[in-house]
Design a protein around this nucleic acid. Structure first.
Lengths: 157, 157
DNA sequence: TTGCTCCTCACGTCACGTGAGGTGGC
DNA sequence: TTGCTCCTCACGTCACGTGAGGTGGC
């Protein structure tokens, strides 16, 4: 057996609290005390074990890294981070909604066109039998001797 | 003549630089030095007179008040203000675009329906004369005595 | 006992606002 | 000359991060 570090991969729901504060802090490259402070400021809300120990989820860690990025790379303070996270959420929702609208509008157009084509076809179908086979024409019933009538079309309202 | 202060109202383009720094600062309720600092930080860009004096527009003053609001009421630092202004712009653009999309989609639906109705009507028009006025029916031409035929419909390819 | 958790308190650093101080042109 | 402009520099305040210090349960 070599001394090589073994790596393994486990799967956990992204929202499930699994990391205690020391681990989460290490993953987010932050001081544990900083995480406690962020929680007090309402920037993050880790789950708690029955004993009261904070349990951070994968999502929490990602959020922490985003906060880290905003504070250290962009120089925002925490009030700014809070506001930016909120706005980004709104923007994302708006973007998703827009894509959905665009998709739906394209669908609708296709559907409408199909329906229009169907209408054309179906109305035309009511005429075609009278014109086909060759040699048939449409005439007004009142021009016909009553005895010879054979085909009727229902009247509409 | 009374000593009462007279007020008057003038109209200026919103983007035109008209206020020198002391006036702009007073209007925005800020220290003039603060405005200079904001400019250095890239948060605002007043016009300049030929002599180099800063000239703030109505828009500039409004932007200053927005910045003021974010820093004093929400506690953002300037990096945060910068970021938030940017995001708000994006969000506004997205919102406007969405409204436009919705409007256009509604228009399109109405147009399509109208067109569909027109198609129905125009195709039906080829039949209607045979069904109206009351008491008329459609029959096959071959059931009619040749001499009594009166109306024909053109065949299509 | 060790190493973690929880908490509160305190201090160093840095950003920001503002005041001082000196210059120049209506 | 007065009062504005321009600029740079410096200081006080405050937010934030982090370390210390004390508690409690595996």
């Amino acid at each position: 057996m070599s001394m090589r570090r073994r790596t393994t991969r486990i799967t956990v729901e992204r929202g499930r609290g699994v990391f205690m504060i020391s681990v989460a802090a290490e993953l987010a490259e932050m001081h544990p005390q900083t995480l406690r402070m962020y929680e007090q400021r309402g920037l993050i809300e880790p789950k708690r074990s029955p004993k009261g120990t904070r349990l951070y989820s994968q999502e929490d860690v990602e959020r922490l890294r985003r906060i880290q990025e905003m504070t250290t790379e962009l120089g925002l303070n925490l009030a700014g981070v809070e506001r930016v996270l909120l706005l980004e959420e709104q923007l994302e929702r708006a973007t998703r909604r827009m894509e959905q609208l665009e998709r739906r509008s394209a669908e609708m157009r296709a559907e409408m066109e199909a329906e229009m084509e169907a209408v054309r076809r179906s109305l035309r179908a009511e005429i075609v039998p009278y014109m086909d086979p060759a040699g048939t024409d449409i005439v007004r019933a009142r021009d016909v001797t009553p005895a010879r009538r054979r085909i009727r079309v229902d009247r509409e309202g």
